[in-house]
Nucleic acid binder design. Structure first.
Lengths: 192, 192
DNA sequence: CTCATTTCTTAATCTGGTTCAATGCTTTTA
DNA sequence: TAAAAGCATTGAACCAGATTAAGAAATGAG
């Protein structure tokens, strides 16, 4: 059950058996059915969740009622509304399972306790968020300076497994185009 | 000279006099003239720089040769190409002063030494990047789901001092619109 | 197996924003 | 203090992508 997350953690920091066991003791295991919400905007987000199996999307509903997908997360990723989690304020994001999932949750208090007891985890989470930040920068650049067909091609190159697991209109809502246009892009590309 | 950065640091973590002095010993003070490059794409970025006074822009040149501004940084901000800095690889970003600046630099080795000797700084930098991440998420959402006039209005609301310090076409390249269109937006808004 | 729902496609029309080109206005620089 | 360079504005033509509408295909629940 913890084998996968241990491998993940081990890539960044090296831990003793005791530290690892303490870490495990703070995690809560849950199975969650497809199409469930881990979080809705307005609630307080008191978790970061590590995905053992399954697929999840994190999205935002804009002022016109459109969904914007921020992230498709699969095995070995973390999901949360970090702004809500870390400042203990109400969430702006929705987190919804797209498949049946197995997850490990850690709550705010436990995370702080973990940092206090094993400061190496502070480093782990710093590196995690640093990577997320860089991904976000790439995506902003991509959105500002590349055409939709380009963005789609880069998406399937970067996340080749996602299109098989996630409906196309959700990918459109990730790329920031209408589902109709994504459909056009695909037929265009398949002809060329 | 260190008063400002100490105030900054103190907002997140509390340090003893010795820790603070050690921190200072790792910083390098520099004055830099307007229109200088702190970093060019292709170089290795071996610094994070804290701005005491002045204004800096961080930008990217896309495949069509267009500049995309990622950040205008002023007093009390940090700038770096984090991907380059933390993975010691060559930079994709340019960092250019827009005004004469006073800066404090820290290099990679010093930062790692600092983390080792005073782990509290790991927390500080985690919180810093977490904030930068959230800002980036906001900007992506904004870019995907809001019109250019909207984005401009939010920009001047969020950074009211920037338009007085930075030429308009650079703001256009931050918002992701052409300078001509930003000009049109402005005349439209001033009439309404 | 069947009806309902969700998903995907195609086509016509419309619009926000780009591109190109011309003009006047400020800053630099020599 | 002039000449040059950079900056902002305006208008016309154009295009990427949105919107609307309708039907086809796939998936799922009873």
């Amino acid at each position: 059950m913890y084998k996968q997350i241990d491998t993940y953690v081990n890539k960044c920091v090296s831990l003793t058996k005791e530290e690892l066991e303490y870490f495990h003791s703070l995690l809560q295991y849950k199975k969650v059915k497809k199409k469930s919400f881990l979080l809705r905007a307005g609630e307080k987000c008191d978790f970061e969740a590590y995905i053992i199996t399954g697929c999840v999307r994190v999205y935002y509903i804009d002022e016109n009622g459109f969904e914007v997908n921020l992230l498709f997360a699969v095995e070995d990723w973390w999901v949360s509304d970090l702004a809500s989690f870390s400042q203990q304020q109400s969430a702006r994001l929705f987190i919804e399972t797209l498949e049946d999932c197995e997850l490990l949750f850690i709550d705010y208090k436990s995370k702080e306790a973990l940092f206090k007891k094993v400061p190496k985890f502070e480093r782990l989470f710093r590196l995690m968020i640093q990577k997320a930040y860089e991904t976000m920068v790439d995506r902003l650049i991509s959105n500002i300076s590349k055409s939709a067909p380009r963005r789609y091609q880069e998406f399937i190159k970067k996340y080749p497994t996602i299109p098989q697991r996630v409906p196309q209109h959700l990918i459109a809502a990730y790329l920031g185009v209408s589902p109709e246009f994504l459909s056009k892009i695909r037929t265009r590309l398949s002809k060329a």
